[in-house]
Design a protein around this nucleic acid. Sequence first.
DNA 1: ACCTGAACACCGTTCAAGT
DNA 2: ACCTGAACACCGTTCAAGT
Lengths: 201, 201
Amino acid sequence: MVTKRVRMSTREALLSATTELLDGGGVEAVTLREVGRRAGVSHNAPYKHFASKEDLLAEVAIGELKWLTALIDDTRLTTDSPVEVVREVMRAYATRALHHPARFALVYIERHSEPAEFKHAAGAAWRNLVEAVAAAQDAGELPRGHSERLTALIRALTHGAIDLALSGHLAPGQKGNAEPEDLLDDLFAFLTSAADGDTSK
Amino acid sequence: MVTKRVRMSTREALLSATTELLDGGGVEAVTLREVGRRAGVSHNAPYKHFASKEDLLAEVAIGELKWLTALIDDTRLTTDSPVEVVREVMRAYATRALHHPARFALVYIERHSEPAEFKHAAGAAWRNLVEAVAAAQDAGELPRGHSERLTALIRALTHGAIDLALSGHLAPGQKGNAEPEDLLDDLFAFLTSAADGDTSK
DNA sequence: ACCTGAACACCGTTCAAGT
DNA sequence: ACCTGAACACCGTTCAAGT
């Protein structure tokens, strides 16, 4: 059941039920009928608040993107070394993704139409991450070069490690030795080592 | 329509129709009714050849895994430098994934039950890739260390770059400068550079 | 403005029946 | 052994109708 400590609008109740179902049984457990039931409304009430099931799910994905944006801000405040900010962010992102796999996947599913708010949230998270990487480059802690491209490298490794770990394809039979966190450590070791040789020019 | 140059068994026709639908409209275009129609049988004839729709799709995924295994073998025969074998394999894998996104995704979807043949094909592809990486390490062209873990690093980057590129989240607004192939080049540059410093011990 | 109940057009899967 | 047609239990979505 949807927990409602305070008075919840129907819209909030629908989103809350959706997240609950998502975390409990994956995206296939999310049906508008069950969402409605848990929110205490009929199975087509969602259409008064969201254009489609896809848009309802997109709203949850937006929440995840905003969480990532906030994570970067928070980590910046609590961590001194710029490269450690990036590393900590990616570690925390991976940890959350492994604990909420369905929410993680939701951000990257195919969409018939991307709501403007989704595009905005994705852009904000991306730019914030690029800034964190650029700061580490400026501090000489990450290799010089195109910041967006280095950010893409770091993000792609993180994303791939998470997705493969979730589907059981990341180093099968090597559990405990090649987890996403381990691969992040390895990548950052290579990157910081390359940055040390960057004193040239 | 399913092309049948030679006499096709119903099973082959079903698989062929599935692949066609997959390439044409993604996994959501694959319905047993349409598969049956294209194969010239009824909408539940597939159940005489596959236990479920999931198993039918798994068969296609197995084909992709076998393709990867064969790709590694073929590349080994045509490429001299061991590290170039690995790099070429990952590049070719990315190219194919970008051209057949639905088949690529099919390998990594959640399954209620993994057929034994699927597990076998995934294991074979993985071991073949590890061997290629280990050969490059032995040749001093990739950094020393746990081969499975380094393979996982390379695979995770490749997988993540593909998946992010397909969903439009890989360096948005930087199209043409941070493609999967570019990130592979960057990673291999860092790795080979680290291998050069590996003369110690 | 928000919600409901009935209905529609799908879907995967099962099953009795045919050859 | 392989296939069919009807049926079942779901689904997302639409719509007329209520407040």
